[in-house]
C-alpha cells in the first residue's frame, strides 16, 4: 500500500500556491503609476526637499514634522536651501498636492499603503 494519489494531490496544491502570483496577474504587464502634479506644484518647481528624498522618505519627514510640532511646538521647517515652510500636513503638503487621489493615492494604491492620517487630518475636496 502507498499513498501516492494523496501525495500528488498535495503537490498540486503546493504548486498552485507557490506560483499563485503568476496565475493571478495573467502575465499582463502592469504600468507603474505616475503621480500627477497640480498647476500650483508645477509652478513651485520643487518640493519641500530633494525629489528623490521625498520619493522614498516623505513619511519620515512627516513623522519628524509631527514630532516637532506636537512635542516641541516648532511649526517652521527650513529645508536645505534655507527655504521655510510651515510644518503641516494639511496646510503645506496638501496645499501644493491638493489632488490627493491623483498624487498620494496613486502611489499608495500601487504599493498597498493606506496611511491612517486622514482619520483626523483633512485634505482638499477635489472636483471630479
Amino acid at each position: 500500500m502507498n499513498d501516492r494519489g494523496k501525495i500528488i494531490a498535495g503537490l498540486i496544491i503546493f504548486f498552485a500556491v507557490f506560483t499563485f502570483p503568476f496565475w493571478y496577474n495573467h502575465g499582463a504587464a502592469s504600468s507603474v503609476p505616475e503621480p500627477k502634479l497640480t498647476d500650483k506644484a508645477k509652478a513651485a518647481k520643487t518640493c519641500v526637499a530633494d525629489t528623490q528624498f521625498m520619493r522614498t522618505e516623505h513619511m519620515k519627514l512627516l513623522d519628524a514634522w509631527r514630532d516637532t510640532v506636537v512635542r516641541e511646538g516648532g511649526r517652521v521647517y527650513t529645508n536645505e536651501n534655507g527655504k521655510e515652510f510651515m510644518a503641516s500636513l494639511s496646510n503645506t503638503c496638501m496645499d501644493c498636492h491638493s489632488n490627493k487621489t491623483e498624487f498620494c493615492d496613486r502611489c499608495h494604491n500601487y504599493v498597498s499603503s493606506d496611511p491612517y492620517c486622514w482619520d483626523c487630518h483633512t485634505y482638499p475636496k477635489e472636483e471630479k
Binding site: 496577474n25 504587464a29 522614498t56
Partner: peptide, 23 residues
C-alpha cells in the same frame, strides 16, 4: 536606509508577469 518601493514593485511585477526588466 529606505528603498524606492515603486521601483521594487516594478521589478517584482516584471518577474511575476514574465516581462522581467530592471527599472
Amino acid at each position: 536606509t529606505k528603498v524606492d518601493v515603486l521601483k521594487v514593485k516594478e521589478l517584482t511585477m516584471g518577474l511575476a508577469t514574465f516581462h522581467p526588466a530592471i527599472p
